[in-house]
Simulated assay, not measured.
Amino acid sequence: MVKTLGTDRHKALIALLIEKREAAGLTQSDLAAKLGEYQSFVARLESGQRRVDVVEFLELADLLDFSASEAVEALSKSGKPR
């Protein structure tokens, strides 16, 4: 299996998550609290140090109010979020 950390798609996913968090007016600490995690968890996600699993992605989509399916479709087509 190909390593995914640092790939164009992984970078695009991170950019999407940061964009959606900021659009929601949340800090990393705010999002972490909503997830029941520490701020460092969100920092590791956003810095590309850890992968986002599917369940986490769905939870993030719910909390940040974006369509997970549309985001996945955009990432699968071009590697860049809409």
Rank of each mutant, 00 (worst) to 15 (best):
74 A>P: 02
22 E>T: 10
79 G>R: 09
5 L>F: 09
24 A>L: 05
55 V>L: 14
82 R>F: 12
55 V>A: 13
58 L>A: 12
22 E>N: 02
64 L>H: 11
72 V>N: 06
67 S>T: 10
33 A>M: 10
1 M>T: 02
52 V>D: 04
24 A>M: 08
16 L>N: 09
61 A>I: 06
5 L>E: 14
60 L>W: 05
80 K>I: 10
76 S>Y: 09
67 S>L: 10
18 I>E: 03
39 Q>E: 08
15 A>M: 05
65 D>Q: 11
19 E>Y: 12
82 R>G: 11
77 K>W: 01
57 F>V: 05
11 K>L: 13
81 P>H: 11
77 K>G: 00
71 A>E: 06
5 L>Q: 15
14 I>L: 14
64 L>A: 09
51 R>Y: 07
72 V>G: 04
12 A>Y: 06
67 S>W: 08
45 L>G: 01
18 I>Q: 09
35 L>H: 03
19 E>D: 15
76 S>C: 14
78 S>D: 10
42 V>R: 00
37 E>W: 04
21 R>C: 04
79 G>A: 11
11 K>T: 07
82 R>W: 06
67 S>C: 09
27 T>W: 00
4 T>M: 14
46 E>F: 02
72 V>H: 01
22 E>V: 08
23 A>E: 14
17 L>Y: 00
54 V>L: 15
68 A>Q: 12
8 D>E: 10
63 L>S: 05
70 E>V: 13
28 Q>C: 01
79 G>Y: 09
63 L>V: 10
1 M>A: 05
2 V>Y: 09
9 R>Q: 15
2 V>N: 14
63 L>F: 08
21 R>I: 04
35 L>R: 07
12 A>N: 10
62 D>E: 15
69 S>K: 11
50 R>L: 00
17 L>A: 03
9 R>D: 12
78 S>E: 10
65 D>K: 13
38 Y>E: 07
51 R>N: 14
40 S>E: 08
28 Q>G: 07
57 F>N: 04
28 Q>D: 00
32 A>T: 06
13 L>D: 00
61 A>V: 04
8 D>R: 08
66 F>R: 14
27 T>K: 05
39 Q>R: 07
48 G>E: 01
55 V>R: 12
82 R>L: 11
63 L>G: 01
8 D>I: 08
71 A>G: 08
54 V>S: 13
24 A>F: 10
35 L>D: 03
51 R>W: 02
14 I>S: 04
60 L>V: 13
41 F>M: 01
75 L>I: 13
53 D>A: 03
57 F>G: 14
43 A>Q: 05
5 L>R: 15
41 F>S: 05
12 A>H: 07
12 A>L: 09
25 G>W: 02
36 G>H: 12
54 V>T: 15
46 E>R: 02
1 M>F: 01
75 L>D: 04
69 S>E: 14
79 G>W: 09
22 E>S: 02
65 D>M: 07
22 E>H: 02
60 L>C: 13
7 T>D: 12
27 T>Q: 02
34 K>A: 13
40 S>I: 06
50 R>P: 00
73 E>F: 06
16 L>D: 05
6 G>F: 07
3 K>S: 13
3 K>V: 07
47 S>M: 03
80 K>H: 12
